[in-house]
Nucleic acid binder design. Structure first.
Length: 379
DNA sequence: AGTACACCAGCTGAAAATCC
DNA sequence: GGATTTTCAGCTGGTGTACT
C-alpha cells in the first residue's frame, strides 16, 4: 500500500482502485479462513467458569440494557485502563493456546456478519460471543465494553497521524467507490473507521474555522463571570474540579464567539490552575517533583504514563494536562523516541534540564472584591 | 504557551432475523 | 404480523498526547 500510494498523480486511474480491491480480497479471505478455524472448534466452546450477570447477555454490539435490572454487582463504567487491557490480552493468549488457533485477533476484530444470518444462534455469532466472553473473564466489564475494546485494540493496528499515502488512498477510494469508501479504507489501511469518516468529511468540507483569541485578564474575567452565571454558581471556589453541562459550554460559545471545545481547554489547563493553585509554585521545582513521581509507577516508556494518575499526587488545582505540558516541554526535543526510550533516562534528562532552563513562577490569580481577576501578589 | 488531531467508547437508525 | 433482539454503520463528545 505504502509504496503504491505515496505518490499518486491521477486519482481516477482505475488500476489504483483495483489495487485496493485486491488487497481487500486478501484481507477478507484471511478473516474468513480464521472464522472457519474458530467454527471447527465450536464443540469445545463451553463456558466452564462463573460469569457475572452482566457478561451473560447475547448482545455484543448494543449497550447492555439495564432498565429492569435489580442486580447489585455492577460493572465498571470508566474507560478501560491499561491493566484491564493487559488482562484482556492475557485472556486472548490463553484462548489462543487452549483452542489452538493462530494468533490473529485482528481477523476476528475485522470479521463482519454481512451475508449470513445475523441471528445470535448462528454458529458465527456463537463463536464470536464465546471468544469475547472468554476475554471478559475476570473483568468487571460487560461484553459490549470488552467487544468495543477488542475492536479498538486489535481491529486497527495503524494508529497515530495519517500518512500521505493514506490520504491518497482515501481520495482514490472515494472517487471510485464513495458508497463503501470508509469500510474498504478502514480494512486496507487498518484504521479505525471513525477517524476515516472525519478525515473524508474534512477533505470534502474543509476544516471548521477557528478564531484567534488573545487571552487577557479582562477576557478571562468575562469568561469566568459568564461561566458562573450559566452554571448558577455564585462562589468561585465551587467551580473547582466541577464538571459543567454541555449546555453551559454552548452558551459560552455563543457569548464569546469561540468553539466551546477550546474554551473548555483554556479553563481546564490554564485558568483552573492559575485560579485554584494556592501556593508559590516554581515551575522547575514542580517539574522535578513530577519527574520523581513518575518513578513510583512501573512505567517503562514515556507513552505508558497515565497523567491523570500522576496528577493525583498534586494539589487538586493542577490539571493533568498542565503537568504533562510543563514536563513534555523539557524532553521532547532531545529525546525524539519517547515511545521506545527507557523512561528512567528520560526522567534523568528531564531533571537535569530543569536545572538549566529559566525558572518561572506560576502566575496565580485571584477574583477580587470588584469581581475582577487580578494577579495574585501574595507570592 | 498554544494548537492540532486521532483515539475511545457510548449512542442510535435501519435492516435483518426471530419470537410469540 | 407485530414486538423483540441483534448486527452494521454512522455519528458524537470528551480525552489524551504530540507537535510547533
Amino acid at each position: 500500500m505504502e509504496e503504491q500510494f505515496s505518490i499518486v498523480e491521477d486519482i481516477t486511474d482505475p488500476s489504483l482502485m483495483e489495487n485496493i480491491l485486491s488487497r481487500l480480497d486478501e484481507i477478507q479471505l484471511e478473516d474468513e479462513e480464521f472464522m472457519q478455524i474458530l467454527l471447527s472448534k465450536q464443540n469445545e466452546m463451553v463456558v466452564t467458569w462463573d460469569q457475572p450477570w452482566y457478561q451473560m447477555a447475547n448482545c455484543l454490539t448494543r449497550p447492555l440494557d439495564q432498565s429492569n435490572c435489580k442486580e447489585t454487582a455492577m460493572f465498571r463504567t470508566d474507560a478501560i485502563c491499561s491493566d484491564e487491557s493487559k488482562k484482556i490480552h492475557k485472556n486472548w493468549k490463553k484462548f489462543q493456546k487452549n483452542f489452538d488457533v493462530p494468533n490473529k485477533p485482528i481477523c476476528l476484530a475485522r470479521w463482519k456478519n454481512k451475508e449470513k444470518c445475523r441471528s445470535p444462534s448462528t454458529p458465527e455469532e456463537f463463536v464470536r460471543r464465546f471468544v469475547i466472553s472468554f476475554l471478559a473473564r475476570g473483568l468487571e466489564r460487560n461484553l459490549y465494553q470488552v467487544h468495543k475494546h477488542f475492536l479498538n485494540r486489535y481491529g486497527s493496528l495503524n494508529k497515530g497521524k495519517y500518512w500521505k499515502y493514506e490520504e491518497n488512498a482515501m481520495e482514490v477510494c472515494l472517487y471510485h467507490c464513495p458508497k463503501n469508501a470508509v469500510i474498504y479504507l478502514s480494512a486496507v489501511l487498518s484504521r479505525e473507521p471513525r477517524g476515516i469518516y472525519k478525515r473524508l468529511w474534512q477533505m470534502f468540507n474543509g476544516k471548521p474555522e477557528r478564531k484567534k483569541l488573545k487571552w487577557t485578564l479582562q477576557l478571562a474575567t468575562k469568561f469566568l463571570k459568564l461561566l458562573m452565571e450559566h452554571s448558577g454558581e455564585t462562589v468561585v471556589d465551587n467551580l473547582k474540579q466541577k464538571k459543567f453541562e454541555k449546555s453551559v459550554w454552548l452558551k459560552l460559545e455563543g457569548d464569546i464567539g469561540q468553539q466551546y471545545i477550546y474554551l473548555q481547554q483554556f479553563w481546564q489547563d490554564e485558568l483552573h490552575v492559575q485560579l485554584f493553585v494556592k501556593a508559590d509554585v516554581k515551575i522547575n521545582k514542580l517539574r522535578r517533583k513530577v519527574f520523581k513521581t513518575l518513578r513510583l509507577y512501573p512505567y517503562k516508556v514515556w507513552t505508558d504514563i497515565r497523567w491523570k494518575e500522576v496528577a493525583k499526587h498534586f494539589a487538586d488545582g493542577f490539571s493533568h494536562r498542565f503537568l504533562y505540558k510543563i514536563c513534555y516541554f523539557l524532553v521532547f526535543k532531545s529525546i525524539n523516541k519517547l515511545r521506545t526510550h527507557p523512561l528512567e533516562e528520560v526522567i534523568i534528562h528531564g531533571i537535569e534540564k530543569s536545572k538549566l532552563v529559566p525558572n518561572k513562577r506560576l502566575k496565580t490569580l485571584v477574583f477580587n472584591e470588584n469581581k475582577e481577576l487580578e494577579i495574585n501578589i501574595a507570592f
